[in-house]
Design a protein around this nucleic acid. Structure first.
Lengths: 406, 406
DNA sequence: TAGAGTTTGTTTACTCCTGAACTAAGCAGA
DNA sequence: TCTGCTTAGTTCAGGAGTAAACAAACTCTA
């Protein structure tokens, strides 16, 4: 049974798996270059992984002038992860295969402020897990709109959910007996972006989300920045307008009071663009129908966002700004205010920074949470702590039943 | 001669030296804990370093309940580094021993916009080097007020010096035949702060400087963030006031137009606090003498700075904010506006972040530049590239002449 | 069709580093 | 003073990883 003489979970072994999942099949030589490992080690590790049944050899690739490469691919059924997105009125679940494909999804009503919240969440999760196939489950990733002290412990502070020091990591872990990684939802999204999206090509990126709230995540050297207490990326409460509206955090003129969904609705109502009881849908419809007052609401928000983001581009010097979130559906209107203000607010040396807006799908939040689990193999420094190690061990052990070498 | 069988420069070996330099003598066990190395390895490495004459065994330390520790200390004469600070009207040199002590300093008039600037700088540096003792020189660190694409190559863009793609790294390296590390001056200061200052106790810090300009450096996980092109930390051009004065970068209301030395002077003149030809000294004197209008100039700048810094504290979630720079001499006046505005602008979860103002000495900038060299041993990931490797190799080789084992 | 050149992948010898078991050297209490 | 406890430091076996030489498998050119 013990294929690997040492019991130690091997970081590189699973880094290979993660790379194959994120970028598709690759040759040993390509992997060695991508992961900065020696070809010699790649030979060794791929031998192990083949024996374990976690990867398989694919067809040869046409020669590039030398010996043709034999591609290695993931065995998709080697594992999967579950992603959970917690919002203030529902939870979304998604199961994602080790190769990054979404296997199934589910979305349910949920009251995060209920006293039975934790038990309720565990019960729904268990139900979702039970409904799955027989692919070995590596772990659960949870994305929450708040600060997470450390992914491993998973203690959450989320004012918008009424959570103070909610120990959801520990509880879910105990209830499910699986590794559980908890993280701020925007950070989780940034991890997914790094693994499957534009972040693949950029080591330094600023990820900005617009939608219910406004958020950001900072990616430096390919790693998402957490800050001292997991609170990094909080742009919603950057002070923007000293004379502004009072924010729920107690201050005046936070960015959130100008660019969040509820802020847009408030402003639109005040100006009579939509009725006093109408919501964001009405505003969207009006803008889509060409109402100049409605588009103005969006473009002004874009203007404010642009100034704040420009400040961060100065300070962080990213290669790219990536905009995500439900709000991107209306980006055409935002953009009208964002683009000129953004370029104007940048100093010449930064003016070339590209802003990319990715098309948004509804399960992206939950997918991001699942990516937390699937990305742990990349986490060579052990930022995800014990839970990350557990995920890696499960990955290797799941396959141990199959192989058996001399 | 070849004490170490392999020619490879050893990162850990010099990490030990850097730690001893920064924190003073330590036992093998303490070092192993601090550097996350196994006690076994510490035994091995300390044996080597003792044989090389780079460290020595000191007295025993009183027992902590167990076997008393035998302390290890640096041999101060094992090496030194030169730090260079380039300002728009002078250069400052400083030689710093491997244990962090300043050995000698020098400051000279200098015109960075002259066409002979590079040759001039090299010549002055050579003169300073020649004037030194016989401690082996490990390398030269240069701090510049601008963006540095990579410490190793040392190509600098510094609008305030009129430098565009100035290849000072390559030129100095060729002229001096020494490893040369070039870095933004605030980032260099942050490295020094990490090595010798408050940064020793904090892995996540935001370093803010006030003085001629206003700057910042971001320390995450003990490493100074450089951004995609070495421009991270640029807060001077964060947009603050849309209606503000035009800045030299072309925009309106950059932070710099409200908080730099020249901005303070401009504002003070406009208000008649000082004469139309008077400078910062006059403003300082007036404030020191208790002129309420003069102190107001400072406190208003403090107010503006506070709002920008608060925004960054939200986004970066540091453990501490460290304020440095010539301007800290007047911090008492700044503070009057800074403190209330800072606390007020923070959301509750961040309100506890401490702000530390360190006493400022004139040669700190140049000392910071020297720290670039002395810190390379910590740079296990090789961020400083080839130049860092060269420094490490010099350190080990300098000592090779002395020792000789069996 | 016989090299020459190129890229992929393997083998081998060796270094770096760790875990585990051990010794060394103090303290505190019976 | 003996026994146990704690911390410091060493030894040793072995795993992880690398560099360098090599083998393999193709293309291109003459």
């Amino acid at each position: 049974m013990t294929i690997h003489p040492t019991g130690r979970a091997d970081v590189n072994r699973s880094a290979i798996l993660a790379h194959l999942g994120a970028h598709g099949p690759a040759s040993r030589a390509q992997l060695a270059r991508a992961l900065s490992l020696s070809p010699a080690l790649m030979t060794q590790l791929s031998k192990d992984l083949l024996a374990d049944g976690l990867i398989l050899e694919l067809e040869h690739q046409p020669s590039q002038g030398g010996r043709p490469a034999r591609m290695l691919g993931l065995v998709a059924s080697a594992g999967s992860a579950i992603g959970v997105k917690i919002a203030d009125d529902h939870v979304a679940f998604v199961e994602v295969g080790i190769d990054g494909t979404v296997l199934r999804t589910s979305s349910e009503q949920f009251d995060p402020s209920a006293s039975t919240m934790l038990a309720d969440l565990a019960q729904r999760l268990r139900a979702f897990i039970t409904g799955g196939g027989d692919i070995p489950l590596l772990g659960v990733g949870v994305g929450v709109p708040g600060d997470v002290d450390a992914q491993g412990t998973g203690v959450v502070n989320a004012p918008s959910l009424d959570w103070t020091n909610a120990p959801i990591g520990a509880v879910l872990r105990r209830e499910l007996g699986l590794p559980v990684l908890v993280e701020n939802n925007v950070n989780a999204l940034a991890v997914a972006e790094r693994l499957y999206g534009l972040g693949r090509h950029h080591d330094q990126a600023l990820v900005v989300t617009i939608g219910t709230g406004v958020g950001a995540a900072i990616m430096l050297d390919g790693t998402v920045v957490r800050g001292s207490r997991g609170g990094a990326g909080e742009i919603g409460h950057m002070p923007v307008d000293p004379e502004g509206v009072r924010c729920r955090c107690g201050n005046r003129g936070c960015l959130e009071t100008l660019t969040s969904e509820s802020a847009l609705v408030r402003i639109a109502r005040e100006r009579g663009v939509i009725g006093p009881a109408a919501g964001i849908a009405a505003l969207r419809d009006a803008a889509a129908a060409g109402d100049p007052e409605a588009t103005r609401v969006f473009s002004e928000a874009g203007h404010q966002l642009a100034r704040a983001v420009a400040g961060l581009v100065h300070v962080l010097d990213p290669e790219i700004v990536i905009v995500l979130g439900e709000g991107t559906a209306d980006w055409a209107h935002w953009s009208f205010g964002f683009e000129p203000a953004f370029r104007a607010a940048l100093m010449p040396a930064r003016r070339g920074v590209p802003v990319a807006v990715e098309t948004w799908q509804d399960d992206r939040w939950a997918q991001g949470a699942a990516a937390l689990v699937l990305a742990t193999p990349f986490d060579a420094e052990g930022l995800t702590g014990e839970q990350g190690r557990l995920v890696r061990r499960r990955l290797v052990e799941q396959a141990a039943g199959g192989g058996d070498t001399a």
